[in-house]
Every structure is written in C-alpha cells, then in structure tokens.
Amino acid sequence: MQITQILFLIFAAIILGSAFKVVTTKKMIHAAFWLIVTLFGVAALYAMLNAGFMAMVQIVVYVGAIAILFIFAIMLTRKELLDSAAPLNKNWTVAALFALLSFSGLFTLLNNWRGFANTAPELSADMDTITELGTALVTPNAYLLPFEVASVLLLAALIGAVYVANEAKSE
C-alpha cells in the first residue's frame, strides 16, 4: 500500500467517525465541534489532491464562518430546548433501512461506472492553477455568468437575512 493510500484511509476514517459523532452526540455544541473535525478532514483530502485553494476555502468559509455561525446559533437558543431529547427517535429502524438501500443503490451504480479507472491528466509543475481559475471566472465563454450570479445570490442571502432579522426584531 502506498503512503498516500494510508493517509487517505486515515482521513476518511476521521471524516466518517466525526460525522457519526455529529449525529449521535447528545450535546449540541459538541456536535458543532465534531462537525468542525469533519470539515478539517475534508480540507485535508483537498490538500492531498494538491488542491490548495479548495483546502483553504474549505477552512476559511466552513470552519471560519459557517461553523462559527452554528455555534452562535446554538448559544443563542435557550438551554431548555437543547440537550434533553435523545438523538434517536423510534423510527430509527426505518431510517437505517432507507440509508442501507440508498447506500447499496449508490454502490451498485458506482461499481459499474468506469470513471474510476481514468487517471487525472498530469499538471506541469509550473502551471499556476490560481491564475487559471481567475481567468476562467471572468472569461465570458467560461464562468463569467456564474461568477456574477454568485454575487447576486450572496446579495439575496444578505437581504433575506436582514429581512428575517428585522421581523424577529419587531416582534
């Protein structure tokens, strides 16, 4: 086994284990911290693929902003609402069945897919992926429209947040 494979297995185990803890742990805030472990694991996978930009974006956006937002949200809710209910309810057998079914479905689908055998094209050592990405983002034939739509989407998110917060404030 290659060293990268061992590393991949370690990170995959960390991601799966912490994701499992997110849904089973009883304290909400612990779930948030386990989620952060998961996100770091994903960032490590990106770094292993030499996708440094994606790894850093993963940490800056998900760990630095979204996880903090989660923690703020948890701390804002009253304690009586949290920590009391068990993480499992009585329908868990049905849920497990559906999870198993969808897993086996995906497994059969992906097992017959030949894409796994393809290897990624080798990048030349002096290729600057960030410049390529930046060029692609503003070239009309490439991703210019999604790039500008992204800003409109962010604007909509901001306006929505302001609207909801205003409503909550006036109540």
Partner: peptide, 25 residues
C-alpha cells in the same frame, strides 16, 4: 512557498478564532 499563502494566513486565523470560542465555552 504556498501559491495560496495569503488565504492560508486567513485560514490559520480562523483556527485561532475557534480556539477562543472553545476556551470560552
């Protein structure tokens, strides 16, 4: 010499933020 050095600076900063919230909680 990371080609995403400056984003790395921001990312390390968010780990610092995390440590503060951990300590406080």
């Amino acid at each position: 010499d990371l080609n995403v050095g400056m984003l790395y600076l921001v990312a390390a900063g968010s780990i610092g933020t995390l440590s503060v919230i951990m300590a406080g909680w």
